[in-house]
Simulated assay, not measured.
Amino acid sequence: MTSAMQVLEQSVVVFSQNYLPLCRINIKRAIVLILDKKAEPLGFSTAGGWRIHSPRLVLDVPKHIRLTVASGERMWKVPPVNRREVLRRDHHSCQYCGSNKHLTLDHVIPRSQGGLHTWNNVVIACARCNSYKSNRTPLEAGMQLRTQPKPPVHPAIAFAVSEAWRNDATQFWINVQANLE
């Protein structure tokens, strides 16, 4: 049997009105959205969700919900190139050796050689790698980047291409097809 705390730690995938995956939210937030009629359950059975009991209400919370209100898409801008955002993009690790100690910003093509302070030219490097690379390109220093630097993508796009929700969504669409037949 599942405890109440274990159930409340579960998450629900949220789809837009156009059935595009947006994010994951906790069950408590999903319940509020459903009760406020801002979202509707997606799914044809409670087998893929949870039954929540309160003193006055029994509610079936599915693993997927769809927003029913237009969520005036907020404008998203590519964040500025700064230490915090580059650390987030590079997962707080050196892009040359993988270390997570004494991290600094490094310009792949040094500014003295015409390199710009852009998302495609700035990476996180540990102090040791940054010092060794010095005022050279990685090729000149004989170093290789672990990942190619690129600008961050819109959070909804990042979520849609992530593996975090795909298994749940696959099962959901299998259920949809089964009920249409």
Rank of each mutant, 00 (worst) to 15 (best):
P21D: 06
K77A: 15
L57V: 00
R89D: 00
M75F: 14
L57H: 02
V32E: 04
F15T: 12
Q10M: 03
L59C: 10
P55E: 08
S16D: 01
A70P: 14
R56W: 13
V78R: 01
A70Q: 14
P55W: 04
L87R: 02
I65C: 04
L35I: 04
G72T: 15
E73L: 13
A47F: 15
G49M: 02
R66S: 11
P41A: 09
K63P: 13
V58C: 12
W50E: 10
N26L: 11
K28S: 13
V12D: 03
S11E: 05
F15P: 11
I52N: 05
W50P: 15
R84G: 00
D90V: 05
N82H: 12
K37R: 05
A39P: 04
S11P: 06
L42N: 06
G43T: 05
V32G: 07
F15E: 13
V69Q: 09
V12F: 08
M75V: 15
G48R: 13
P62F: 01
R24N: 11
R88H: 07
L33F: 09
Q17D: 10
H64R: 15
R29L: 00
P79R: 01
S45K: 12
S16Q: 01
I27W: 02
V86R: 00
N82R: 05
R84D: 01
L67G: 05
H91R: 09
R83M: 03
V78C: 03
R74H: 13
I25M: 10
I27N: 02
L20E: 13
A39W: 02
P80Q: 08
I65L: 02
G72V: 14
K63A: 13
F15Y: 13
R51Y: 06
P62Y: 05
N82Q: 10
R29W: 00
T68V: 04
I65M: 03
G72A: 15
T68N: 10
R84M: 02
V13D: 03
L22A: 02
R89Y: 03
S11D: 06
C23M: 06
Y19W: 14
K37T: 08
L57C: 02
P79Y: 01
H91W: 08
K38Q: 02
R74A: 15
V81F: 06
S71Q: 12
T46F: 12
W76A: 11
P80R: 03
N82W: 11
L22I: 08
I34M: 06
A70L: 14
E40L: 09
K63V: 09
I27K: 01
R74E: 15
H53C: 11
P41K: 06
V12P: 04
D60Y: 14
I27C: 04
W76E: 07
Q10V: 00
D60E: 14
A47E: 13
K63C: 10
P80A: 09
G48I: 12
S54T: 13
W50F: 08
